[in-house]
Design a protein around this nucleic acid. Structure first.
Lengths: 126, 126
DNA sequence: TCCACATATAGATCTCTGTCAAATTAGAGC
DNA sequence: GCTCTAATTTGACAGAGATCTATATGTGGA
């Protein structure tokens, strides 16, 4: 299955630092932090991919077959496949083939990381 | 000053809905919600713009002169100016001229909106 | 084995975007 | 008014990206 799905990221933002406020607002992002985060944001910076992400997350059992997704758009299957690949390469989703169909699900840690960068973290059972 | 800075967005995501979990994960994003959110994410989906945002937010008094920003990058002034314009058009920052210099500051509401879409909201003094 | 169906890949095309150099606008001070 | 500096606009160009058609791969059933 070639080299398509190396989940690139371990973006250098550590959750402890986020206790006070959004890391982005606490202290200047380093060049390398920015370089790691930008591709993640780029992956979700597309209306089709945002909806794909949402459709997958909200689908029964938290996973969806490509066929479920394709029908929700006015786009060809290759295009949907392309967008899914982009999301997967960013580490935001994962997939598995089961018989004829391929199922995708969300990697929630990735979304949370982005959320943390932008805003204050949820109080840990404060 | 032409038409550059209409803050486009009032992305149809309402904070009340976010009480349980990230809107993105609660129910499928509508086509129009996705269309409004994607440009916002696109604005921050660039390493230079992420750092600009962060530099501005962390600068003294929460605002920074363009001259402070330009020196932090290995890019020409027109390029920095371009990125600032993108951020401003997205409504993420605002600016004002004071004498010779132009100052930029963060519009915190915008960042928070994006954070809310991706992750659970901070407990309101739970 | 062969066919039908579900996905993915390859290649082409058109559009969008990041960057720079050059020219322009805006203030401040002489 | 002139000139210096700060910042933006314009125009050009190269690289990235979204989409399609055509083709390939993989799986299950006749």
């Amino acid at each position: 299955m070639s080299k398509q799905q190396l989940p690139i990221i371990d973006a250098g933002v550590n959750v402890a630092d986020a206790a006070c406020c959004a890391p982005l607002l606490c202290e200047p992002l380093s060049e390398s932090e920015a370089a790691e985060l930008a591709p993640l944001f780029k992956a979700i910076a597309d209306p089709v991919r945002l909806r794909l992400l949402s459709l997958i997350a909200c689908h029964e059992d938290g996973e969806a077959c490509v066929c479920d997704l394709t029908v929700a758009f006015d786009l060809t299957p290759p295009t949907i496949s392309h967008h899914l690949k982009v999301l997967k390469q960013a580490g935001l989703i994962d997939s598995e083939r089961r018989g004829t169909w391929v199922y995708y699900w969300i990697n929630p840690g990735m979304l949370e990381r982005l959320s943390v960068v932008l805003g204050p973290r949820v109080a840990e059972t404060a």
